Simulated scan of single mutants.
Amino acid sequence: MKKFLLTAFLIGTFSLSYAQSDYYNDYRRSISDVNWQNVITDLVLSSVQAKQIYVLNDRYRDYDTWNRVYVVDPGRWRGDRYSELERILGREKYLVFKKKYYRGQNPVIVYGRSKNDYKNYKKYRKEQDKYYKERAKQYKKEHKHHGHDHWD
């Protein structure tokens, strides 16, 4: 059983890191695909807003810092990033940004369309569910007291 759990954990870890890197690549593209200087000029943003955007864009400079935050739910970066952008720009300018740079679509959807995103997310969730079920079984087994199972 221990070998099975170790094997499942290692497979899950390698698969997870592949899926995680796809999410991280989408995150990086969401920054690099946009000319932020043009956004700042087009939307007539204040210097404070411009600085906040640059700080937001530099928040996770590498995979490790990004992964520490999004390891459990890698798709969450989209909602976090774009709600923060909306806060910085204000609702009206955010809508203009969205219309001009994402053809009116929600940026969360735009960067949720990578060819591997949904497939990897499903695989990731399935592996996570399996891993946590195995952990729960192991925990139950380890915490039985004198034939009495606290979980029943």
Rank of each mutant, 00 (worst) to 15 (best):
K2C: 15
F4G: 07
L5R: 10
L5Q: 11
L5P: 06
T7L: 14
T7Q: 12
A8L: 13
F9T: 12
L10H: 08
L10N: 09
G12I: 02
G12T: 02
G12N: 02
T13K: 08
F14G: 06
F14Q: 08
S15W: 14
S15I: 10
S15T: 09
L16S: 09
S17A: 07
A19Y: 05
Q20F: 07
S21Q: 13
Y23K: 06
Y23P: 03
Y27C: 00
R28K: 12
R28L: 07
R29C: 09
I31K: 02
D33P: 02
V34C: 01
V34H: 00
W36D: 01
W36P: 00
Q37M: 10
Q37H: 13
N38Q: 09
N38V: 05
T41P: 04
V44G: 12
V44R: 15
S46P: 08
S47R: 12
S47P: 15
S47E: 12
K51Y: 13
Q52M: 06
Q52V: 03
V55L: 13
V55F: 09
L56P: 00
L56K: 06
L56Q: 06
L56R: 08
N57G: 03
R59F: 05
Y60Q: 03
Y60D: 01
R61H: 09
D62G: 05
D64P: 13
D64V: 14
D64Y: 06
D64A: 11
T65C: 01
W66C: 01
W66D: 02
R68N: 14
R68K: 10
R68Q: 11
V69S: 04
V69Q: 03
Y70F: 04
Y70R: 01
Y70N: 00
V71R: 10
P74W: 00
G75K: 06
R76L: 11
R78C: 02
R78W: 03
R78N: 04
G79Y: 04
D80W: 05
R81P: 04
L85C: 03
E86W: 11
E86D: 09
E86R: 15
R87Y: 15
I88V: 04
I88Y: 08
L89N: 02
R91S: 14
R91M: 12
E92A: 08
Y94A: 00
Y94G: 00
Y94H: 03
L95Q: 15
L95M: 13
V96T: 09
V96I: 09
V96E: 04
F97I: 02
K98D: 00
K99G: 11
K99P: 10
K100L: 07
R103A: 14
R103L: 11
G104K: 01
G104L: 00
Q105L: 10
N106M: 08
P107V: 01
I109L: 10
V110H: 01
V110F: 05
Y111S: 00
Y111A: 02
G112W: 03
S114F: 03
K115L: 10
K115A: 15
N116L: 09
Y121V: 12
Y121M: 15
K122F: 11
K123P: 00
K123G: 06
Y124D: 01
R125I: 13
K126S: 08
K126F: 13
E127Y: 08
E127R: 09
Q128T: 13
D129C: 12
D129P: 07
D129A: 11
K130P: 10
Y131D: 06
Y131V: 04
Y132D: 06
Y132E: 07
K133L: 14
K133S: 13
E134H: 12
E134T: 11
A136G: 14
Y139P: 03
Y139I: 09
K141D: 12
E142A: 10
H143V: 05
H145Y: 14
